[in-house]
Nucleic acid binder design. Structure first.
Lengths: 236, 236
DNA sequence: GATAGAAAGATAGTCGACAATCGTCAATAG
DNA sequence: CTATTGACGATTGTCGACTATCTTTCTATC
C-alpha cells in the first residue's frame, strides 16, 4: 500500500505538475517578483511542450502569482504594499465569513481537530519556534475555513493565503512575536468551538484588520505612497 | 473613430473570444446545467483549434461556469440551492467589504456616478420594469464595488455575480418585487455617499443575508435537502 | 543630433496530428 | 445468471511546427 497511496497525491496531469513546480520556485524566492518567465525556457527545463507550460502559466495567473502581458511576456507578480493591502482586506472578509459558518455548522469531530491545531500553535509559540509558529498560524486559519464547509470559500482562501505568504516574504513584513500570537488565536478558537458565530466573525475580522494596520504603519515612514486603496485614480 | 473604439472592446485573442461565446450561451440558457461540452464540437462550430477551445474552457472553469472531469469530460456547472447559498454568502462578505471601502475612499466623481445609478434603479422600479430594474440592481452593486478601488475585489465580485445570475435563472429564484428594491438600496447608497463606512458595510451585508434567507425559505418546502452548508460531511 | 520608419529578432498565439485514458459492451468463466 | 476480463470507440492530454505580434535595432531623413 505504500506505493499505492502515493498515486492519490501524485499529480497525473503534466500541466498541473508544471504549475506545481513553478509555483514552488516562486514561493521559494527562486523566482522573485518581476522575474521574467519564458515559455520556451521553462518547457526545456521541465521537459514538456510549450503548450503544457502555457496551461500551467494560466493556472498560476489565476492564482495571482504570475502576470501576463498579451503577445509579449509572462512574469512573476509584483510585490508591493498595495498588493499586500488588497490581500489582507480580502482575507479579513473571507475569514470573517468562514469563522461565522464554522461556529454554526462544524461537526464535533472538526471542532476537536481545531482544538488540536490550536494546541500545536500554542506549543510552537511557547517554544519560540518562529517558523513552526508561523506555519501553525496559517494552519489554524485554514482549519477554520475548512470547517465552514463552503467549497468556494475554501478554494479562494487557499489562493489568498498563498499570495499573502508570497507578498510577505518579498515585502519584508515579518510575523509578530510568537508569544503574541497565542492570545488572539485562543479567543478566536474558543468562539468557534463555543458556536458563538457573531463573536467568531468579529474576532477573525479584527485579527486581520490589526495586521493591515501594522502593515500600513510599518510602511508609512517609507518613501513610497501614502493612502492604501491604490487611489491613483482618474477621479475628481 | 467609430470602427476604432470597437477595437478596445473587441477581443483579439481567440481563446478569449471562444470563452466569451461559450459564456454567452451558458448565461443565455442555450446550454443548461450539466450540458456536456465536447472540445471537438466546439472547435468545429467556432472554427478554431481544439487547443484554443481547451484554453477557453479552462477560463470558464475558473469562472465557475464549467466543470471538468479529468480525462473524461467538460460540462456546464450544476445549479442547486447549495451552489446558490455559497454564492450569496460569498457575495455578502465581498460587498460588505466593498461598501466599507467605497464609503471611505471613493472620489467625488465616483459618488456622483453612484447617485445617477441609483436614480436609474429608482426609475425602473417605479415604472415596474422588472428586467430593467434587475439590471439596475446589479449595476448599482457593481458600481459600489468598483468604487472600492480594490482590484481583486472587483474581479472576484464580477465572477460571483455572473454565477449568481446563472444560478438564479436555473433555480427559479426570481428577484423581489421591483418596488421593494428601492428602500433597501436607497439606504445603502446614502450610507456610501455620506462616507458612513460601518453603516454601509452593515447594510450591504444584511441586504444579501436577507436574500439568502429568502432563498432558503423558498426552498424549505421543496423535496430536496434541508440544511445549507452542504453539510453532507464525514463528521459524526 | 534627433526623429521617424523599416527591417530583423525574439516571443507569444494557434494549429493539426499523435498519444494516453476512460467508459462501454461483448465474450467468457464460474 | 452473474461477474470478470479484454477489446473497441470516443474523448481528452500532449507535442512540434507554423503564424502573428511585439520590441529592438538599424537606417535614412530632416
Amino acid at each position: 500500500m505504500s506505493t499505492l497511496t502515493s498515486l492519490k497525491t501524485q499529480e497525473r496531469l503534466l500541466d498541473r505538475q508544471a504549475a506545481n513546480s513553478i509555483r514552488q520556485q516562486i514561493v521559494n524566492r527562486t523566482m522573485p517578483p518581476g522575474h521574467r518567465l519564458l515559455e520556451a525556457v521553462l518547457a526545456r527545463e521541465l521537459e514538456v511542450s510549450r503548450g503544457t507550460i502555457r496551461s500551467a502559466l494560466m493556472q498560476l495567473s489565476n492564482e495571482g502569482l504570475v502576470r501576463q502581458v498579451a503577445f509579449t511576456k509572462w512574469e512573476v507578480a509584483p510585490a508591493s504594499v498595495e498588493e499586500a493591502w488588497e490581500l489582507y482586506t480580502l482575507r479579513s472578509a473571507l475569514e470573517g465569513l468562514a469563522a461565522s459558518l464554522a461556529a454554526q455548522y462544524a461537526s464535533p469531530a472538526e471542532r476537536d481537530g481545531l482544538s488540536r491545531v490550536f494546541a500545536e500553535l500554542e506549543a510552537a509559540a511557547n517554544a519560540d519556534q518562529r517558523e513552526a509558529a508561523a506555519d501553525a498560524d496559517f494552519k489554524l486559519h485554514k482549519t477554520i475555513v475548512a470547517m465552514s464547509g463552503h467549497k468556494r470559500l475554501i478554494r479562494d482562501h487557499e489562493r489568498i493565503i498563498l499570495q499573502v505568504r508570497f507578498q510577505m516574504t518579498h515585502i519584508g513584513f515579518a510575523p509578530r512575536e510568537t508569544r503574541d500570537l497565542i492570545d488572539d488565536h485562543r479567543d478566536l478558537t474558543e468562539a468557534v468551538l463555543k458556536g458563538d458565530a457573531a463573536r467568531a466573525e468579529q474576532l477573525a475580522r479584527t485579527h486581520n484588520s490589526a495586521e493591515v494596520k501594522r502593515l500600513l504603519d510599518a510602511n508609512a515612514r517609507q518613501p513610497s505612497s501614502g493612502t492604501p486603496g491604490a487611489n491613483t485614480k482618474k477621479g475628481d
